[in-house]
Amino acid sequence: MTIRFVLFVNKQGQTRLAQYYEHLSLDERRALEGEIVRKCLARTDQQCSFVEHRNYKVVYRRYASLFFLVGVDNDENELAILEFIHLLVETMDRHFGNVCELDIMFHLEKVHFMLEEMVMNGCIVETSKQNILAPIQLMEKTS
């Protein structure tokens, strides 16, 4: 297992997307999200993008008002996860065109579809934007 959760959080600390690749109860999730978000939001731009929390390492990146947080194992390549976040954002950008927080909220299921094409069971499965978006575009065309 490499990626353990993916979180999108806005500047106010509200969760905009949460995908866990291991089982946590609702209460545990809430507590975890609260703690991590507080830690990450308090950091400045000059500080590095990695925060250690409990037994997770959280790699985060900020795009405008949204924070993208990925929790990984301790032996995961942090720099690669940064690239992964960027790839995810670029993929959403390509689909929504200049993606914003509202796009993600109103099309939560589509973002989940994209994420599902990219990550399965915590492992990265596809890194080509075209391949990621193909099934989603196909679905939109037929409907």
Partner: peptide, 16 residues
């Protein structure tokens, strides 16, 4: 182009 990230082809595959 499909796998290019910052001038490097598919760093994810490299790393795995």
């Amino acid at each position: 182009p499909e796998y290019d990230i910052g001038g490097i082809t598919d760093p994810f595959l490299h790393i795995r």
